[in-house]
Nucleic acid binder design. Structure first.
Lengths: 104, 104
DNA sequence: GCTTCAAATCAAAAAATGTCAATATGAAAG
DNA sequence: CTTTCATATTGACATTTTTTGATTTGAAGC
C-alpha cells in the first residue's frame, strides 16, 4: 500500500458520490454487466461509463470483458485494502500526548 | 447507523479530498487547535473552517471549544462507524449467485 | 460598556466534477 | 470487409465544490 494523498483520495472517491454508492449497492448483489446497471440506475450510458471508470480506478470494483460486454463486480482485495487504508488514516500515532497546542 | 445514501456519501466526503486527508494526518498526532492547523496547512482561515465543518459533519472529527479557541481531534467512534459502514457497503449479499446478467 | 482576537459565515470568483449528445473503438456476426 | 452492437471517449455545458476576501459572531480582557 502506498500512501500518497492523491492515491488515498482516489480510493475514497468511490464512496463520496450517491450515484456510485447506488452502483455499489447493486453490485453487492453480484457481478453485473453495464447494460443492466444502466437500466437499473436510470442513467445515461456515458454517465455510467464515467462512474465505472472512477470505481475501477479506486480499486473497489473490477471489470471483466466478455465479448462485447463488460461485467463489473466488487473487488474483495480492493475493499480489504480500503478498510486497511481507512484504519491507517484514522488511527492516532502511538502516543498522542496532545502537547504543544496553542497556549496550553 | 442509518444508511441513507446522502448520509453515507457525507461520511466519505471526509476522505476524498487531499487537503482533508492532510488535516487528518495532522490530527493523527493528537488534538490540535485551528490556529495550528492553519499554520501547518498553509491555508486560509476561512478555507480551513470550511474543511473542518465537512470533517465534523462526517463524524470523523470532533471539536471542543475552549474560550476563543476551537480544538479538533479524530473521533474514535466516528472512525469506527466509518469502518463499519465501509464494510457494509462493500460486502456482497449472502449468496451472490451472479444470475440474471445479460445473455448468460 | 468598548476592544481584541479566534473562528464562522457570506458572497463572488475559480476550479473541479458530473451530464448529455455525438463520435470513436473494438468485438462479433454476417 | 461491412454492419451491428456494447461500451469508451470527447467536448460543450450545468452543477457542485473550493478558495478568497470581507464581514459577523462570540468569548475574554480592559
Amino acid at each position: 500500500m502506498d500512501l500518497t494523498p492523491e492515491k488515498n483520495a482516489k480510493v475514497f472517491k468511490a464512496f463520496c458520490d450517491e450515484k456510485r454508492l447506488a452502483i455499489l449497492e447493486l453490485l453487492r448483489g453480484g457481478e453485473k454487466c453495464a447494460c443492466v446497471l444502466i437500466e437499473q440506475m436510470e442513467i445515461g450510458q456515458s454517465s455510467l461509463s464515467y462512474h465505472m471508470k472512477i470505481l475501477c480506478e479506486s480499486g473497489i470494483v473490477e471489470s471483466r470483458q466478455e465479448g462485447k460486454w463488460t461485467h463489473y463486480k466488487i473487488s474483495e482485495q480492493g475493499s480489504y485494502e480500503a478498510m486497511q487504508l481507512l484504519k491507517a488514516i484514522t488511527t492516532p500515532y502511538a502516543t498522542a500526548d496532545d502537547s504543544d497546542c496553542c497556549n496550553r
